[in-house]
Nucleic acid binder design. Sequence first.
RNA 1: GCCCCCAUAGCUCAGGUGGAUAGAGCACCGGAUUCCUAAUCCGGGUGCCGCGUGUUCGAGUCGCGCUGGGGGCACCA
Length: 558
Amino acid sequence: MKKRVTKYVESAVKTVAAARGFSANDLPEIGVELPREKAFGDFSTNIAMQLARHWRDNPRRIGQDILAELEKESELSAVTIAGPGFINMTLNISLWHQRLKEIHGLQEDFGKLDYGADKRVLVEFVSANPTGPLHIGHGRGAAVGDVLARLLKRTGFIVDREYYVNDAGNQMQVLGRSLRWRYLELLEKRHGEIPEGYYRGEYLLDLARKLMAEQGRELVSPEVAEEDDTALDFFTSFAADSILGGIRNDLELFGVGFEYWTSEKEFFTSGKVDAALAELQTKKVLYEEEGATWFASSRFGDEKDRVVVRANGVKTYFASDIAYHRDKFARGYDLLVDIWGADHHGYVPRLSAAIEALGGKPDSFAAILVQLVSLSRGGTPVAMSTRSGEFITLEEVVREVGRDAARYFFLTRDSNSHLEFDLELAKSKNNDNPVYYAQYAHARICSILRKIEVEGLCDKAVDTFSGASLTLPEELDLIKKLDSLPDLLERAARTLEPHRLTYYLDDLATQLHSYYNRNRVISEEQEVSGDRLLLFATVRQVLAICLTLLGVSAPEKM
RNA sequence: GCCCCCAUAGCUCAGGUGGAUAGAGCACCGGAUUCCUAAUCCGGGUGCCGCGUGUUCGAGUCGCGCUGGGGGCACCA
């Protein structure tokens, strides 16, 4: 509807511009928005104030001219000028009724947009190192990434999800040593404090037990020195494979799946890292200094240059990441979205620099930084991580509060804000819990629809009603809220802000609950009942669309 | 020291490309069920939008400076 109104305004402004002798091509973008106060009408525009600057005239006088044009539009029932020069417009009520029918007719396709124009997007997220189980912070990244992917898909992008497995580098060596130490501990050949820098989590002890049960007690000589590499590769890959398997299970439990799992190691073994460096060499953005090879990222906005090959000849993580992102573009993606923990923010400029150096457009790469999650239980903070390496895992959280609540909670805040996750609140089955609020709205409507069905209260099909008896303000508000979904989805996709969905859902549920308490749907008046059923069926449909986008279930009974 | 993020009601937080009287939930108090699910609804009040300054018709929103909190500043990943 907004687009429709924008067209009216645009055409009116063009006419006025012509009459005043201004070019119709040189106009500011027409902004149409929902007025703050309902009393002002359905839509409003500040175009007269925008034009006042260019045309050097009083905004109210310009507004009068535009208003005169808009009044010729038969679909508008009222047009007024208010305040400093806002033009407020009210649509003919029958248009809203038509719109309701239209939305209902679209069924689950309502809100499928072509905004993305089939551009290919790769959303890379979680990508936790396979050195330990996922914790709650990874859960937030997983929820944000997965819902963003769903959102982009719905708004017309072609989307793939990817998990980048950091299975190369020092940390893998350390992981192998840590597991080997635990294994020897079980053989009573290691005692006391775990060596400095090793992974300390209990999960490695569990893995060592599993390893011993499956493979026996003679994998390595008990007398092996810590710095000795004997059998280390075996321990490393056993640990990495097991942990990665656990991560996959946790994500599956959380309802998150990936099209691709990409291995960092393969970028080294396949020569892609060398190829990427060679390309940078050709572009003359690499240089040697103090025995190392540097990428001149400061030429592309980074604060200083970065090492890609160390003096000892070993390539850095940054080097493989350049190769990785180069490869993403080579795979045909138009837009790369990476979701990282906020502690990686210093990394954004250098990777952007590399992408730019390789010829990528600046807006073809976006990094979403997800802030920390602090966990509490009934208001009391729960320690996230201690020196012993113990923390609350994602699996524990999902098992305790459920997938729906966990996913929903992770999306109740802008990624940029810290999130406090309270386990008791997420578990509670009362009105404190926003997840159930939205789901309950859905279940309530389903209950009415069931009642109609079972008792045969309505002998006509719901979609044969016109909606014409829906004239209460709260009925029109509901229709307007439904109508605004595509606009919301487009904005959420444009700004890469999936959390907007939970706010929309909460608003819609509030309106529904309020209406439900004030008005009866089923009554003796056939037309009124039918129209209200049409409204409710459509609200249900939109609730289900939003819940599904969040990866949260839409229960028919609660 | 430099860089990034945050700062809005008692608490947790929303606030579109700058627009009309800055919102919600929680907490607190009171009320609603002969009738479609009370996991619901209705009513009650609260703000130097951290401070200062600039830009302009207009700033919670944009610029600059400051204060406070978090994070980052590796030839780690």
